[in-house]
Design a protein around this nucleic acid. Structure first.
Length: 430
RNA sequence: UCCUCAGUAGCUCAAUGGUAGAGCAUUCGGCUGUUAACCGAAGGGUUGUAGGUUCGAGUCCUACCUGAGGAGCCA
């Protein structure tokens, strides 16, 4: 009898198979038992008739509790009453372990309890659907860049200095010196872009900001492309293409999971290029008209981003922010030096920023001055300044936060469900 | 760091300052098509912690702890 995964059960109609997994739920009616078995690829209802077993055997099966690990042998049968279209008539079984008092019941639970049991919560259908979609999004990112000739070059997690100087970093002992957990691979990407032309890195990043909101995690994943000889416009198009591929992939390959999440699929189907573009100047005017207190020169608050992204059914590209609110390496606009050649991509439906990027300063003297303006010591940036000394080149890139994309695509109300084991302000367990 | 709200059975929640309750889960019994199955029964409590007010506190007051939502900060 072949061992089969639930997702392939349809290929074995009429034949005997072996399934291995866990009891997701069970109902019984005296002479019949309905066992909903899940194995990571899906779940299927297995039906046991009392007449096919000795009374003792039937009783053993009846004692199988929620999340007990079990092997079930049986015949695959088409059945319109079953959600997946197929059922298995049980002919034999073996219980590996009876799970006692599984804490997550089919009823409602609070956030704190579910987070405390995150290692078990992952087994539930909703979390399973989210992480399947996350996987699809990550695969789409890799395919997108790989297919365009990018080289994946991962950047270090331990960094010797507080790179951008804009955010609080996690500090850790590195033998006899201090090190910091990376907040971005971007500076290193600029070095590899000079070696490989088109590069990207994909890894975890860390921020020690005491942010306690639905859109912040202490540890999150970013994909960051960097392209030699690209400008702001190239970067906006690269970002647009990436978002379109992600949306298209998820709609094509993960519709079932979107349905489990009861996601409004029509909202995703509407997304197409080109995305509307809005200068920072226009965005400020629009926000003021909508009642925001924002003044020209200030960065958007969380409420401002939500406001802007709620006004569009498409993602929105906001470009040319004031240089002052952006990182030191952002290239000033030659026509208007007070603004930077940078862009943020805001997801629709109020999800806000998912991409930030732009063109980098490529002039040595200007970069030195920008470091001074930001009160950063030039000493740790010598290698970075070298890039402007030995064949400097215009270049641009961006960073995209994976969890924020997952939250938007899945329609989640909080980032903590977009990653298997979220690190939030006051929780590092499990 | 600040603001708001909440901590009662394993879980989700009730209980006017006056006997601690329900649903789910668990255990036992019933049911041949269940879909968060259903029906019957049982066990299950130092009401977050420490003080205080009161004849009497789950309920009111103070401090602390824990969690949730938000602000700031940030992506």
């Amino acid at each position: 009898m072949p061992a089969v995964y639930v997702e392939n059960v349809g290929d074995h109609e009429g034949s005997e198979i072996t399934l291995r997994g866990w009891v997701y739920n069970k109902r019984s009616s005296g002479k019949l038992q309905f066992i909903l078995l899940r194995d990571g690829t899906g779940s299927i209802q297995c039906v046991a008739f009392k007449g096919n077993f000795s009374p003792e055997q039937f009783d053993v099966l009846d004692k199988a509790t929620q999340e007990s690990s079990i092997e079930i042998r049986g015949e695959v049968r088409k059945d319109s009453r079953s959600p997946g279209g197929y059922e298995v008539d049980v002919t034999g079984f073996e219980i590996f372990q009876l799970a006692e008092n599984y804490p997550i019941t089919p009823k409602e639970h609070g956030t704190a309890f579910l987070m405390e049991n995150r290692h078990l919560w992952l087994r539930s259908s909703r979390q399973h659907a989210i992480l399947k979609i996350r996987h699809e999004i990550i695969k789409a990112c890799r395919d997108y860049f790989d297919d365009q000739g990018f080289t994946l070059i991962d950047t270090p997690i331990f960094t010797p200095n507080a790179c951008e100087g804009t955010t609080t970093l996690f500090e850790t002992q590195y033998f006899d010196q201090m090190a910091y957990l990376t907040q971005s691979g971007q500076l290193y990407n600029e070095a590899t872009a000079a070696a490989f032309g088109k590069v990207y890195c994909f890894g975890p990043t860390f921020r020690a900001e005491k942010s306690k909101t639905r859109r912040h995690l202490m540890e999150f994943w970013m994909v960051e492309p960097e392209v030699a000889y690209a400008n702001l416009e190239d970067t906006m198009q690269l970002a647009e293409g990436l978002i379109c591929l992600i949306v298209d992939r998820v709609l094509t390959k993960r519709k079932q999971q979107l349905e489990v999440l009861e996601r409004n699929i029509a909202a995703l189907e509407k997304i197409s290029r080109p995305f509307p573009r809005l200068s920072y100047d226009e965005a400020v005017k629009r926000l003021q008209a909508a009642g925001s207190e924002i003044k020209w020169g200030g960065d958007f608050g969380g409420g401002d981003e939500t406001l802007l992204s709620e006004q569009h059914s498409s993602p929105l590209l906001v470009h040319r922010y004031p240089s002052e609110v952006k990182a030191f390496y952002m290239q000033p606009d030659p026509d208007r030096p007070e603004v930077a050649l940078c862009v943020d991509l805001l997801a629709p439906e109020g999800y806000g920023e998912i991409i930030g990027g732009g063109q980098r300063v490529d002039d040595y003297d200007l970069l030195v001055k920008r470091l001074e303006d930001h009160k950063l010591s030039a000493e740790p940036f010598q290698w970075y300044l070298d890039l402007r000394k030995y064949g400097t080149f215009p270049h641009a890139g961006f960073g995209m936060g994976i969890e924020r994309v997952v939250a938007w695509i899945c329609g989640l109300s909080h980032l903590r469900e977009a990653i298997a084991f979220p690190r939030t302000l006051y929780r590092i367990y499990p």
